[in-house]
Nucleic acid binder design. Structure first.
Lengths: 295, 295
DNA sequence: TCCCTTCTGAAAACATAGTTTCAGAAAACA
DNA sequence: TGTTTTCTGAAACTATGTTTTCAGAAGGGA
């Protein structure tokens, strides 16, 4: 029936899974992901153990083994073992390569190397106390939160806005057009939090609005790069993300990481209220039929 | 009976074998040597296979498993598997402390662990050929590029749009409001590239617009999660990013990584034109005095 | 909405793996 | 060499793993 996979012979199991991934069904994908999680060990136990670990039934496992072009589960497992033998006995394979099926000079690998290194440096430079302090600020419902980004970082501000908005009220995203900023400023109150994103090619206008906000007693949280935006002197809290990568542009990945970590922190700290809000949102989304519930 | 080996708990199998080697009988030594030859793979098959490979009987194998301090052969094998897991599974991503000045249970460290692991899995599942193919497509100036994201992923679409726009012409970002989509569709031509972002809680409307675009001969590139959006079947190219993190929400960090890698790939491939464009943009930004040059 | 197709897992059927028994073989000792 | 002890593997047996079947569930299409 599924003999369309005759060209699969002697391919890596991971490769095969990847190749057929979009022909797999829901339960099969769930299983595929479990197999790829700590590959290949998870596939070396019994079919029952694998089924349980992935939360599917044993027939599903057996079926997928056939779908991948094997005669049955034992054959699938034999292939895993022989792959392992090839990997373990080859000391070269122990080196850290991110995308194992690409040469290390491939942009994917070079990029991954740099980004992980950037993450390393960023976190070591970041004081957890300051992180916690910011999370704390954002948890206080009486403080309004305002977000603003620059030309490139506006998307990040938007992303953070989308999530904060799900968790609490009084969150606003300031539009990038600087001519309308004065209107936003007069709506800011003492004790409000103003989150600004500014990376190199620092934008002058941002500095101006930050100064005005600071004068009104607004607490400024700055997300910037390793060199530090000039408006650091107006800010109470700073995050410095490393952004240099092998490209003509800078990478926002580490900055997005910090944003998500902050969001996770806030969510963690206000678990009760946020889950409550989320459930309500869930119902709302259901109702508008815009979104379909995930299996 | 052979309970003299009670101190063996949680030792490596190879260690245990060496420890009691001189208490082993002839057939058992023969077996021991087979196990130690390409360790540990040889021990991961069936007891029968191992017996045959070492030229002894199955009872001998079972007996030795007990002699080494295990309850039986399956227990022996489980130990081998768990050793393997510790050895093979990426030592880098496992329990590394990212922010050294925070406890490893701090959300920053937990989050970093997971994201790096996600990056790992994502890259191993990603075929570099498909990556290159997408980069290739985006380099062809005659193809128009259209971008669209969902509720959460719109920011990512915007980010990619901002960068692609700097590099080439004919790039458009489709607004999130689905009522206006038909207007965008009629402007799409055969051979155009349509980049869609869709992660879990997959949005139905996206599927509809994708179908319509596919009918017009538009090439669809999909950024989705590890489970795969249902519109995968309409798309020619797919990126599956791992998005699960210790939070109530999913993480877009790995997806942003992929986006940036694609952007870097395009920029790399079209170096001459892009640098030319960038210089012109540079002059333009200078002129509007919106941006200040770095340092 | 209904119908049809596809997917899924419980349970039965089946196959293989693992253990125990036991008689013969090999070694150890006198 | 004879006696005793220990070792070994064929075979029977038991446990566990794997596949098949099938009915209900979920999803897609009209």
């Amino acid at each position: 029936m599924t003999n369309t996979t005759s060209s699969n012979d002697s391919q890596f199991v991971s490769q095969r899974i990847q190749d057929c991934f979009d022909r797999l069904t829901r339960a099969e994908r769930q299983l595929a992901n479990t197999i790829l999680d700590n590959y290949p060990v998870s596939g070396l136990g019994s079919i029952t153990a694998l089924a349980e670990a992935s939360g599917v039934s044993t027939p599903t496992v057996a079926r997928m083994a056939r779908k991948l072009g094997f005669g049955g589960f034992p054959e699938f497992q034999a292939q895993l073992r022989s792959e392992l033998q090839a990997t373990v006995s080859n000391p070269m394979a122990r080196r850290e390569v991110w995308a194992q099926n690409a040469p290390d000079t491939h942009i994917l690998n070079r990029f991954a190397d740099t980004v992980v290194e950037n993450l390393h440096h960023t976190l070591n430079q970041q004081s957890p106390e300051e992180f916690d302090a910011v999370v704390d600020l954002l948890c206080q419902p009486e403080r309004a939160i305002h977000l603003l980004g620059g030309r490139i970082t506006q998307s990040l501000a938007k992303y953070m806005f989308t999530h904060l908005q799900m968790m609490r009220s009084k969150v606003s995203l300031i539009e990038p057009n600087s001519s309308s900023w004065t209107h936003y400023i007069i709506n800011m109150n003492k004790g409000d939090v103003f989150i600004i994103f500014d990376v190199r090619r620092y934008e002058r206008d941002l500095q101006r609005i930050a100064e005005m906000a600071a004068e009104r007693g607004v607490i400024i949280v700055l997300f910037t790069d390793q060199w530090g935006s000039p408006l650091g002197k107006h800010s109470q809290h700073r995050f410095n993300a490393r952004i240099e990568v092998p490209s003509a542009w800078d990478s926002a990945t580490v900055m997005l990481f910090l944003i998500e970590a902050v969001i996770a922190g806030v969510q963690d700290k206000t678990w009760d209220e946020t889950t409550d809000r989320m459930e309500k949102l869930e119902v709302l989304f259901e109702h508008t039929k815009l979104f379909r519930k995930f299996i």
